[in-house]
Structure formats: structure tokens, C-alpha cells
Amino acid sequence: MAQAFTKAMARNIFYGGTAFFFLLFLALTFQTHSALPELDNRNALTGPQGEMIAKGKQVWEENDCIGCHTLLGEGAYFAPELGNVYKRFGSTDAIKGFIASRPKDGVPGRRSMPQFNLSEEELTAIAEFLKYVSEIKTARNWPPNTQG
């Protein structure tokens, strides 16, 4: 590097640049928060239905579903995308039926979802949670098709 460019200048670019772009990031975050009510399907999260979805998120987390599946593309890549599973399966009952019917000992030679022994209430909750996620307005309606 040329001698004219000193360590002090490099340091100032670091501190100044970091401060500026972090503030810009905060501004974009603020902008995001203002736009989210139109996108994130938060109306579903109110009332008794909202409590059911909250319970569903708890079931989702406490069984580490993200350890195999993706949800809006984030998670593990071992099992299908679930951000749109409600659209793929067509109903909450189909989702509940699938989860409840997983064989305890798996399927010989193939991947199989574990049998989580969820209660009827937990099944309803997780299905409602997945329905809520499928109704989040993602950009360009991601994923590209129903296969996820």
C-alpha cells in the first residue's frame, strides 16, 4: 500500500465505516418493522387462534423440527420445506394425519419422520402454526412452487 495511506486513515475508515453502516442497518431495520404488519400475517396471532399458534410454535421448537426440515428455506435440508406444507397438503387435517401416522420404527432403508406421540391438541396446534406460516407474504411468493 502506498505510504500516503497511513494506519490512522485505515483505522478511521474502520470506525467511521462501521458506525455509518451499522446506523444504516438500524434504519433499514426500522423501515422493516414499519412494513411488516402488511406482510407477516400478524393478525392470525391474536385471540384464541393466536394462542393455538403460539402453542404450535412451541411444539415446533420443542421437537426440533428445524433439525430436519426447512421453514421458509431455513433449517436442515434432510426433509421437505414446511413453510408451504399447508398449501401442498391442502388442509390442517392432512398435516395432522401425516404426523400422527409416522411408524415408530421407521421405514426400512428410507428416511422417515420419527413418531413424536403428540396429543390431539398438540397436533392441532402444530398444524395451525404451519398454516399461519404458509400465509406469511414472502417476496415473489417464495418458494418457487408447491414442492418447496
Partner: peptide, 21 residues
């Protein structure tokens, strides 16, 4: 940090966040 902080935006494409990301 100049590139990476706002670069967080590459995770905000498809998760229900606004399209400006």
C-alpha cells in the same frame, strides 16, 4: 463490516421481510 452488516440482507429475501432487502 462495511459489506457484512448490510450484507445481512441476503438472509432477508424470502422470510416475509420487505422486498427492498
Amino acid at each position: 463490516l462495511i459489506t457484512g452488516i448490510i450484507g445481512t440482507g441476503h438472509h432477508y429475501y424470502w422470510i416475509g421481510t420487505p422486498a427492498f432487502w
